[in-house]
Design a protein around this nucleic acid. Structure first.
Lengths: 195, 195
DNA sequence: CTTTGCGGAGTGAACGCTCACTCCGTCTAA
DNA sequence: TTAGACGGAGTGAGCGTTCACTCCGCAAAG
């Protein structure tokens, strides 16, 4: 029997339960007792792995944000050779991932808009922007990026994506390949101009 | 001495305190005791005007959303004669208003992503969409709207605006007239195509 | 004009409850 | 045997909400 990572198992069980419950009941409705119960773990164990409830949420947030950044980077270093190809790959990957991982998406959104989010240690956009900034600096082929601050360029892609993923979760719309292609092109056109 | 609206004063003081405190400390960090204190009102008075804390938040939300819809409608029925003119007026009005009314903006955002938000009685987009849908249905001049669901069209304008207003609040960027014009045109181009 | 009675807005200490967090006994593996 | 992982009842603080009471302006009575 594999006992090597028993310690990690409990920790992971707690994190999985947290993700699930926060998505369902929000931060307010999720008590530590409930998390412990859902994770089949005692209260004491929870506080063995996480100093406070807030710390647990913070670690979850950082973990989820790293996944997000990983997806963006995968899109960049994937097979695509053109900048637009990489851009489309990122849009597609994020849409697919967060459509199928609603709890992860909702956790990120909830945390970002909650009072837990301290501006000091979490310069969200700066961290996510670093791979993006790399793209923006690379010389284009037959286009150039609009003369707008990097933050704005990012917001003009990330903003609509968040809204659209929320629509998908609410089942207000269903996404087809053609729609996604059309949206991707629209977003691309909104941040670039033809040379 | 004007004593006509004394009753409303207390109610308004409570709502103003709520807006302020929720923006500062979030829903979780805002206790009814704190609200009452900030509004210079007894605990009992709060419960004379609002059935529960949740009800107070809900009324605040509905009130703020009505303001939002009012701004959109003002943009439509304002002096602008072209569809693009109306579109630009709405974008400008919303940006200006929420840049200068951070607490209102943050309250709306927080509430929308919180567990207070019941999908049942608050079909947010449906209500906000009604004035927008009117624009979309009107025949264009030298353009037509992209063949995408109304919800998506809306999300592609509203999404980036939210993100950009957040950037302005965080003082990551400062908005100039030229930037706003450029952004407005970009958003317009992302939802329309030339005929 | 003055006194008395009354309705209801306003109050805040008190209540019951839930919460995050602690502490110590138990169990397990070496 | 023993160290430390683990469980969960216990704890006190803080929460939303209540309710018995005060206070004030006005109207009717004298």
């Amino acid at each position: 029997m594999a006992t090597a990572t028993l310690t990690t198992d409990k920790r992971q069980a707690i994190m999985e339960a947290t993700l699930d419950l926060v998505s369902k009941h929000g931060f307010e409705g999720t008590s530590t007792a409930l998390i412990a119960k859902e994770a089949n773990v005692g209260m004491g164990t929870l506080y063995r792995y996480f100093e406070t409830k807030e710390e647990l949420f913070k670690e979850m947030f950082i973990h989820q944000r790293e996944k997000l950044i990983g997806i963006i980077i995968s899109g960049i270093v994937g097979g695509e050779t053109t900048i637009y190809g990489q851009f489309a790959a990122i849009v597609r990957a994020l849409t697919t991932y967060y459509t199928n991982h609603r709890v992860e998406f909702e956790f990120l959104q909830r945390y970002s808009d909650s009072s837990y989010m301290k501006e000091s240690y979490l310069d969200e956009s700066a961290i996510i922007l670093s791979p993006i900034a790399h793209i923006l600096s690379s010389g284009g082929e037959d286009f150039r990026f609009k003369a707008l601050p990097t933050h704005i360029i990012f917001a003009m892609v990330y903003g609509p994506m968040i809204s659209i993923i929320q629509l998908l979760h609410q089942e207000k719309v269903t996404m087809t390949d053609e729609m996604l292609e059309s949206i991707t092109l629209s977003l691309w056109n909104s941040i670039t101009e033809q040379r």
